[in-house]
């Protein structure tokens, strides 16, 4: 007779049933609903119509392209700035504990609060940023009113708010590097810059993997900051997939909205899977 385990699987039942009903079921249902014309009253099967529309209507295509651009720009900036800040804040500079807290605090603040605050600071004529720029004779741009700049401004605010997390992860990564490596490099006559490229960058690679993955995923999924700062405007110039999904839902195009959701899943899978493979391979090699 089989002995009963002291770790019964039914312990997981409450958690798994909530997760299954509220996360897995909707995710699977979305595959079907994305193929329908769906409104508050009925869902009618329509094949790939929604997807065709997503890749033919210019304003929807714009949302897809913006999402990728936004994720890449914020990911690159957070990774580079995060590593540099972490190196600075582990070098024993005066007051580094307080500096770490200052850089990290925005991560915990409400995104909507941050968005509204920067919306006022980026006001084209009165905003603090452009007033400060005018003191040194620069005519500041319309950060959020210029269609070709709006999304980039949102990206800068996202970096402001998220770089603290990247820094924190890098600080934890740097702490695992044994000082012996730097000692050896110094004896071999390596300069500070060589030590950074030859010792720090390769040995902090696992932290880089985490920072890149986290910031790419959160960049692709971002909704609240865009919604608080521009609502996708001016026009559709700063729309990302998540804001398109919300707008189509609000207008009653539930099928189209769900297709946007499925495109977002696929995009995350297509971008993240090969990256994970590449990062793990480099990790083994180095």
């Amino acid at each position: 007779m089989k002995r009963k385990s002291h770790y019964p699987y039914w312990f997981m039942l409450p958690a798994i049933s909530v997760f299954f009903v509220l996360f897995i079921v909707p995710t699977l249902a979305s595959l079907y609903f994305s193929l329908t014309i769906w409104d508050p009253f009925e869902a009618r099967f329509s094949g790939f119509e929604n997807y065709v529309q997503f890749f033919s209507e210019p304003f929807l295509v714009r949302g897809v392209v913006n999402t990728v651009g936004f994720a890449i720009v914020t990911c690159v900036l957070k990774t580079i700035l995060g590593l540099l800040l972490a190196v600075l804040l582990t070098s024993g500079v005066w007051g580094q504990g307080l500096l770490r807290s200052i850089v990290f605090f925005p991560v915990l603040v409400s995104t909507i609060g941050v968005g509204l605050l920067f919306q006022e600071m980026m006001h084209p004529t009165q905003g603090a940023i452009n007033v400060a720029l005018s003191w040194i004779g620069i005519n500041g741009p319309g950060w959020l009113t210029n269609p070709s700049l709006a999304l980039f401004s949102v990206a800068l605010v996202d970096v402001w708010r998220g770089v603290g997390l990247a820094t924190l992860i890098y600080i934890a990564g740097l702490a695992t590097i044994s000082p012996d490596y730097y000692e050896a490099a110094r004896i071999d006559g390596a300069t500070r810059l060589q030590q950074f490229w030859r010792v720090t960058v390769p040995l902090v690679w696992p932290a880089t993997t985490t920072v890149v993955m986290l910031s790419l995923i959160s960049g692709l999924r971002l909704f609240d900051l865009v919604w608080a700062m521009t609502r996708g405007g001016p026009g559709f110039s700063s729309d990302v997939l998540a804001s398109v999904i919300y707008k189509q839902y609000q207008s009653g195009f539930w099928g189209l909205s769900t297709a946007g959701n499925v495109i977002l899943f696929i995009m995350i899978a297509v971008i993240i899977a090969p990256l994970t493979y590449w990062f793990n391979k480099r990790e083994v090699e180095s």
Partner: peptide, 27 residues
């Protein structure tokens, strides 16, 4: 095997964004 499957299953939630409108339908 079952445990590894459940673990992988639960971790998908970290990556995949929730499908909002179908969730409203379920709710």
């Amino acid at each position: 095997r079952f445990s590894s499957f459940v673990y992988a299953f639960v971790l998908t939630g970290l990556m995949i964004p929730p499908a909002v409108v179908p969730t409203i339908w379920v709710l």
